[in-house]
Design a protein around this nucleic acid. Structure first.
Lengths: 213, 213, 213, 213
DNA sequence: AATGAATGAGACTTCATTCAT
DNA sequence: CATGAATGAAGTCTCATTCAT
């Protein structure tokens, strides 16, 4: 987790007026953020405690408030940063010359890998529905927008149906999220490649029998 | 809410040793359950308070404990009962002579109606991920099983592809849930009929362009 | 316990204005008293609950207040009655023609038997120190008085030292009580006869070596 | 009480993970312990309240939990520490060259003084029978062991009877405790010197008339 | 007289946040 | 900046006692 979540560190949000001014401060802030990701991921927002965070971070309780205004604030930071990570990750494997279907599959595979490696992230984002609803909506709205963008591009190229609309993006997103939850977060009893095959075929043909089959 | 949630009342779980023995007790327990559904729906589990529940119910604080052992227990009761309601509702409009696709669409439509009318239920079931994870998993696993059963039946009749598997059910469920969240719970800017059309067409053909189009 | 504690039933204290007027009431009151002896003996005053008492008694919670004014009152009744029992018991084996030392030994033996058979009683009387201090003091003061009476009688007959005073009675009582606690209530690893021998010899000669030995 | 109970302060039990790390913390913990001794002594365990303790200590309610896990824990600390104090005190006046009988008398006198000055301690230790039975038994078992040790030493030197056994120690302890309760804690209507005389004479000769008298 | 639901004061405990060092 | 003690509001839960049936 250390190396991985190191990269998860949220940048100072625009509202956080507590920017560390020294190297040492920088380090402390980073430790707190890592610790918070662990703590929230393991215990959930309400069971998590500031003292749990500072203990994991190896700092004094009071130091928390040197860098964050409140429990809510650090949680918000985390959610938004993680949302960002999900986005960055989704695009990591996509190449310009892929077909639209290949693109979707690649994005899904990346998502699966990410979900498997960062199970705690999903707990955190999901819990935002209750702790920071705005971030939660924003996360899914932005994700849907990106998917919609890709689908539309596929439609323009003639690969996807021309009447693609927002609902298609939400349908794809829901499918992806639930498959990720079931096959990457809850258990990995099936190879994710196979699950990705099923999803790809779903996009290609739906679930009805094709005469071509 | 009164009439509606009246029907939501959880039966006594097998472990709850606090069964009302009089009509009056029956009424009080019902009032508490209704109130809890409201309170949890509006505030979420952690912000909700027993005293909030009893105030809504118009009973004394202590009366809560005449019928429930704890805040957790009433929440669990609620989640399980609501899960049950969702199930019952999904099958309400399905007729024997429908095609498999019609069946799916009908179930989706019922789900949409239900989600629109019982927004609080989805908050509650979702929050179970953190408060009562077992119920949460159970809810989605059982829902997936039911969908899988329907899909397999459709496969047997030759309408759906013959290699239907569990992942298909999770994909369909994810699609349904996210469409419900976006278009029924968050806002109703689009007619749900149209959304159901999109979903049905998705099942029929995926999102790729068909030469037949 | 049933038959035994049946006999322990407290008579209506002078302050209890709640005398049952029917046979049925008589029976209910008796059941409650038995139940209370059990409950207080097992759990102690504060952990004991009225509902625990009524459950043991097999009556409704509310019925308790038909016969007793409060938890304190029933406890007081119990303590005083038990104190009475201890007294009655102590004299049960004493005969007129015994020597003073035989009398003391007989009283101690009776006490040991009683303590062994009614362990709960000692918990109850001891707890009175905190719940009903007056009864507690009264119990030990009256017990000491009785012992003192016997010792004085022994002094008059020339068997005990002539300068017997109150402190002697308290010393004897303390010895008896602690031996009872250690060898009858806590464990019975030594035959009580032997313990009584030790106590008798203590009274006779103290613990110093006698040239006569 | 302040100066006196200052010395009563319990050391951190081995299980208490809440050790003050600063001078200020040290002081607060001490204030709480003193206050608890007062509160428990005056009101008894169950009537005592954490808020009563913190009020006496002049700290915020929450500060209690900075140093103790629960009401039970602080009570246990207190009982064990006080048991220790009783022991230390009993030996305070004993010199090596005393006769065995002088030794017992000295121990008793020390006990009397202690009981008079720390009445609350006896309430607390006695109440342990119900709140922390293990400590209670331990207290009396260890006290009996010490007495037994002294008596055996007296037997070896030929001053006490050679067949001294455990029961003798319990008899002596019972005598001492009850005399202390009656003449030091309940009231001081008789000079304790005289009471100690009676006890000493009891040990020397029992209560029977001696021809030598 | 019996029943069992209703009441509500009060206790313990948690923990985010502030403050003194 | 770091530290960790101090604060106190707020919440859950218990249970003796009262009340309606």
């Amino acid at each position: 987790m250390d190396m991985k979540s190191r990269d998860m560190r949220a940048p100072n949000g625009p509202s956080s007026g507590k920017v560390p001014r020294t190297k040492r401060g920088e380090r402390t802030r980073a430790k707190l953020l890592d610790a918070a990701a662990q703590e929230f991921g393991e215990k959930g927002f309400h069971e998590a405690s500031i003292s749990g965070i500072t203990q994991r971070a190896g700092t004094a309780l009071g130091s928390f408030y040197t860098y964050f205004d409140s429990k809510d604030e650090i949680f918000r930071s985390l959610v938004r940063h993680m949302s960002e990570q999900v986005k960055v990750n989704a695009y990591s494997g996509i190449k310009e010359d892929m077909t639209a279907l290949q693109t979707e599959r690649t994005a899904l595979a990346a998502f699966f890998r990410f979900a498997r490696d960062h199970k705690e992230i999903y707990r955190i984002i999901d819990e935002a529905e209750f702790v920071d609803p705005e971030s939660y909506r924003l996360h899914y709205e932005k994700t849907a927008e990106r998917i919609l963008g890709r689908l539309r591009k596929g439609a323009e190229s003639g690969e996807f149906r021309p009447d693609i609309e927002e609902a298609h993006a939400w349908a794809v997103m829901g499918m992806n999220v639930f498959l990720g939850m079931r096959y990457c977060v809850w258990s990995q009893d099936e190879p994710t490649d196979h699950i990705a095959d099923v999803a790809e075929e779903f996009l290609r043909n739906g679930i009805c029998r094709k005469s071509a089959d």
